[in-house]
Structure formats: structure tokens, C-alpha cells
């Protein structure tokens, strides 16, 4: 190359000595900080929730026996039976899963095994829109659409605020999540396995249900677990439609308050720091956090192991 200028000739010279690039180091340090910040967030959650929850459990009036052994929750007057809230969480989550698991799984099978690409391009967005609707809107839907329908079916047996309506709508809300996770699991099953079944004269349904589905079972299990974790943590639907006021009951026609619904209602009002009402909310939140953490960890483990098997 014939570069004439002096600068150009100078450019050719080189020095392999290590250079200290200060901006490069600063940038790397800040990126590292951004990366590690998420750890601090987790630590902050555990610390702050744990600290207040400890204050709650250290209250001489609160005993583990009362907390786990009784069924009335009203910290203001010395009732600390967490089951009053847990029961409603269990009922609504159970109803939600009864709805969302079969429906989500069936739609996943249809989308991954049957649907033409054209049908998919219409059906997938429907599920995506469902997944993108804010939960408070689902709450409106539960209270002002589903509940009146239930009322017209069951009459006075069912209360205006009831766990059934909240649970059903929560099921619809979680359906897209189950569907998309299950679909990922189904499409990860290798083609060769399907072809093996077809080559033995299996019909499409037999292949889907007896070969593909069992092979994808762990991925579907992961979807189920994430679904449960979503249901347990869901707040707005139950806050709007399931009722306010702790109530130990497993009757879905009755009004009852879930753990999340309770936090939303109490914290929305006037709340003084350090009161037993305040610290008790953190105890509930801590339970929620630990529960969903464990569920998410399990499902991630399942997904990772599942992925390793087929990749």
C-alpha cells in the first residue's frame, strides 16, 4: 500500500505493550455493577421482608401455634391464624389450575401438532392478547360479567363476591402461559420420535397423546408449576372479585380473601409503620416470596434438564 502522508506511516508502527484503557475499565465496571444489581434486589427483598416479618413473629402475642393452628386472621385484635388467608389462596389457585391446565394443554397440542401455519398466525395472537390484558381488567370482567352469570345459574347460593368467579377468570388469565410453555415443550420433542410412531401406523392423535405428550411431560410439569406460582401471586382479580375480609372456608361460592388480596386491601388504607398490621403484611409477603421462589426454581430445574435431554 502506498500511503504517502507522515501520519499514515506512523500508523504502521506498533507497540505490543499492554495499554491501560481507562474508559474500557470504567465501562466494564459499570456493566458488572448493572449485572450484579439483580442480586442486590433479591437481597433487598429478603432483607426488608425478612426484617419486618421477624418483627411480626417476635411479637410476644404471635406464636407459631396460633399462626399455623388457628383459622381467624385479624392481627388488630390478636387473631393470627394464617389459614384464613391461605384457604382462599388455595381455593382460587386450585380452580384456576383446573381451568387453565387442561385448556392450556389442549390448545398447545392443537397449535403444535394440528394447526396449519395460517391457523397459527390467527390463534397465537389471540392467546398473546389474552396474556397482555392487565389483571385489573380481568377483575372487572370477573365481577361484572362472570359473577352475574354465576348468579343467574346458582341464584342465592352464591355470594356477590365469591372465589369461584375469581378462580375461573384467573384460569383464563393463566391459560396463555400454560399454553405457550407447553407448546415449547411439545415442539422440543424431536421429529424422529413422531415419525417413528407414524411409521408404526399410529394416527395423529395416538402419536400426540401417547408418544409426544409423555416425552414432553416434564416440560408440561414445569408449565404447571409456573402456572401455580402465577395463581398464588395474582392479586387484582381476587382483590376485585373474591371478596374482602379473611374467611376460612373451602366453599368456592363464598367470599374470602387471599393472601395477596389481603395485602392489597390493608396496604391501600392508612397504615402506620411498626404496627402489627404493617409487619403482618410483610410476613405474608415473605411467605408468598418464598413459595413462588421455590416453585420457580423447581420449574427452571425441570426445564433445564428437559432441554439437555433433547439438545
Amino acid at each position: 500500500m502506498n500511503l504517502k502522508s507522515a501520519e499514515a506511516r506512523k500508523f504502521r508502527q506498533f507497540d505490543l505493550k499492554k495499554k491501560f484503557r481507562i474508559s474500557e475499565s470504567i465501562i466494564q465496571a459499570s456493566l458488572f455493577f448493572a449485572g450484579i444489581l439483580s442480586i442486590f434486589i433479591t437481597i433487598a427483598i429478603v432483607y426488608e421482608l425478612g426484617k419486618e416479618a421477624m418483627l411480626f413473629f417476635n411479637d410476644p402475642d404471635v406464636t407459631l401455634g396460633k399462626f399455623l393452628g388457628t383459622t381467624k386472621w385479624q392481627p388488630g385484635i390478636g387473631q393470627y391464624g394464617i389459614w384464613a388467608l391461605v384457604s382462599a389462596t388455595l381455593v382460587t389457585s386450585f380452580i384456576a389450575m383446573v381451568i387453565s391446565l387442561p385448556l392450556g394443554l389442549a390448545s398447545a397440542i392443537y397449535l403444535s401438532e394440528y394447526a396449519s401455519s395460517k391457523a397459527r398466525s390467527i390463534l397465537k395472537p389471540v392467546l398473546e392478547i389474552l396474556a397482555g390484558i392487565p389483571t385489573v381488567v380481568y377483575g372487572y370482567f370477573a365481577l361484572l360479567f362472570v359473577t352475574p352469570i354465576l348468579k343467574s345459574i346458582f341464584g342465592d347460593q352464591i355470594q356477590v363476591y365469591n372465589m369461584l368467579s375469581a378462580g375461573l377468570v384467573m384460569g383464563i388469565m393463566i391459560l396463555p402461559l400454560i399454553s405457550s410453555m407447553s407448546e415449547d415443550a411439545l415442539s422440543a420433542v424431536p421429529r424422529s420420535l413422531r415419525e417413528a410412531a407414524y411409521a408404526m401406523g399410529a394416527t395423529k392423535v395416538e402419536t400426540s397423546l401417547q408418544v409426544v405428550l409423555p416425552a414432553a411431560l416434564s416440560g408440561i410439569g414445569a408449565a404447571l408449576i409456573v402456572g401455580i406460582s402465577r395463581a398464588v401471586g395474582e392479586t387484582m382479580i381476587v382483590a376485585v372479585a373474591a371478596g374482602s375480609g379473611p374467611n376460612f372456608t373451602f366453599d368456592p361460592f363464598k367470599a374470602a380473601e387471599t393472601m395477596t388480596g389481603h395485602i392489597a386491601r390493608i396496604s391501600g388504607g392508612d397504615l402506620s409503620y411498626n404496627s402489627i398490621d404493617y409487619t403482618s403484611l410483610f410476613a405474608i409477603a415473605m411467605m408468598l416470596f418464598l413459595l413462588t421462589l421455590v416453585l420457580n426454581l423447581i420449574s427452571q430445574q425441570i426445564v433445564n434438564r428437559f432441554r439437555e435431554r433433547y439438545e
Binding site: 500500500m1 502506498n2 500511503l3 504517502k4 502522508s5 501520519e7 499514515a8 500508523f11
Partner: peptide
């Protein structure tokens, strides 16, 4: 590549010479 390595000369010339090369 030349710019990030601190080339200060005539860039048009460098591009032409490199493409010729």
C-alpha cells in the same frame, strides 16, 4: 477498523489504497 485504532491520516486515501490492494 482504522478509525478505532487511531488512524489520523486521510481516510479517503486509505480506503482507496486498501481497496486497490
Amino acid at each position: 477498523g482504522a478509525r478505532i485504532n487511531g488512524f489520523k491520516g486521510n481516510m479517503d486515501e486509505l480506503v482507496e489504497q486498501s481497496l486497490l490492494g
